[in-house]
Design a protein around this nucleic acid. Sequence first.
DNA 1: ACCTGAACACCGTTCAAGT
DNA 2: ACCTGAACACCGTTCAAGT
Lengths: 188, 188
Amino acid sequence: MATVNSYTRGMPTPDRTSLDEIVRAARELLEDSGLASLTMSAVAQRVGVRAPSLYKRVRDRDALIQLVAEATLSELAERLDQGTTVADLADEFRAFGHERPAAFALVMTPGAGTPVAGDQFRVAATTGILRVAGELAGQDHALQAARTFTAWAAGFVSMELNGAFGLGGSVDDAWNFGVTAIAAAITR
Amino acid sequence: MATVNSYTRGMPTPDRTSLDEIVRAARELLEDSGLASLTMSAVAQRVGVRAPSLYKRVRDRDALIQLVAEATLSELAERLDQGTTVADLADEFRAFGHERPAAFALVMTPGAGTPVAGDQFRVAATTGILRVAGELAGQDHALQAARTFTAWAAGFVSMELNGAFGLGGSVDDAWNFGVTAIAAAITR
DNA sequence: ACCTGAACACCGTTCAAGT
DNA sequence: ACCTGAACACCGTTCAAGT
């Protein structure tokens, strides 16, 4: 009995959760019901503790949201690192937005006051794009070309996820039109 | 006395505020301190009543935010209607984002759960772009061209406002590079 | 050392009571 | 008819007290 209930000897209670589990729960909650529903209570309930216990592992709610943003960017970076053409990158980028719309919005268009990922995570998510942009536009214009591509892709998918394409017409056609246009525009 | 304090005869109290004034206060608050600070209490204080009184004029906080979004889009539409070239539209669009960053973010990249403007307001903000896009790309590709332009411009300014261009290099140069690239790309 | 209930300062919103 | 204080159900966060 004493070996199980170790607190009977005044020893520390065994951990009932972990930072990893908390971030995972937060990411699920974000995708399932949006940033507003990502409350400390909801996260705590999901991992099986009370809200105040979370403060042993994260500084506050903003810090938790930042961890979610950084985990999201790491995943995106990994996926974009595979791409070798503009079309590859574009499709991978868009697919990610469709799979994780809330996380995508969190990292690409955080509202004012929403915490953002550290610089290194944002840089990491752009290296794949920068590589391909450099090949097409030349090293002198790599950064500008990468920014043109990223702005277009992020803008397009954000608008799409926000239902901003309400005028009819095929969104897929507009996407392919854009991919072709951007690729041509940034190719030296 | 009775003519001044009309309530002494059981008559309605004179209005102490108006919907217009409330929306104006909300827009100021949004721009001054962000969406999170746009609370019913703060708006009420700004117009000189108590929070519960606001519910006589707006259904709830979301409805008020939607009114702010719609007022913002009306103003943007008016400004874009003047433009005759891609560069005109692009610069006007970007200038608007710089002048009203919080309102710009609210309408271009509302977070999940954030109320959005009615369709007619979003359509109105695209007519100027659609007109110029049609002239350049031909009517058959007007919609796709407009979407390519809008996605790029919205994405670029959003990234800029979010400080996503941290890699160095001139942001203005990247903007001009993009304007030229997009204009060429959508010109038939 | 981790976890908890209680407490505090905030929210948005409702509603009976004032004028 | 409009406005208000009081109340309710929520938040995030702190902290003393438990184990």
